[in-house]
Amino acid sequence: MKKFLLPLLFLFLFLLESLFVQYIPPEIFGRNHILAPHFLFGGILFLAIYAGRKYGIIYAAIFGLLFDIVWIEIIGIYFFLFPFITYLISKIMHVLQTNIIVAFLVSLVGIALLEFGVYEMDFLLHITTLEFMSFMEMRFYPSLILNAAFLLIAAYPLKRHFESFAESLRDE
């Protein structure tokens, strides 16, 4: 039972993102802002920080691929960026000490990197023609605030869950 808990949690986050964009009316934050939820990636970064790099990168690759196939239909964008940024973040965490505030801030940096990465890739592939400054105003800052709010709520439960997961790994 415990073995399935982790994939189920990430599957829930995966679906939560879709439900969020479908049901949160855009008027709440003003029509001119685009809020992109990255709850799943926030969770993966916390996993990498608290349960070890290996698990973080495996989950990042699996869910990146799933994300690409189910939502984007262009395989490669998230399949590459998820593990790559997870790796970078876990490298950064080697230097810093692991406490919850640092984990929160570093995860936010990771989400910001993801947003930039996806923007650059989509710009190269002509999926968007949004200019950089309007991207920052319309999408980047609002999305970052949204994800910060989510991480603020979820940080402590995620930390506890992943720490107990890491402990059960060590016991085996």
């Binding site: 993102e17 964009v21 992109a36 939820p37 939502w71 999926i127």
Partner: peptide, 10 residues
Amino acid sequence: GRNPDRWHEM
């Protein structure tokens, strides 16, 4: 479902 990425509106 709706694409949460919001670049590709699907």
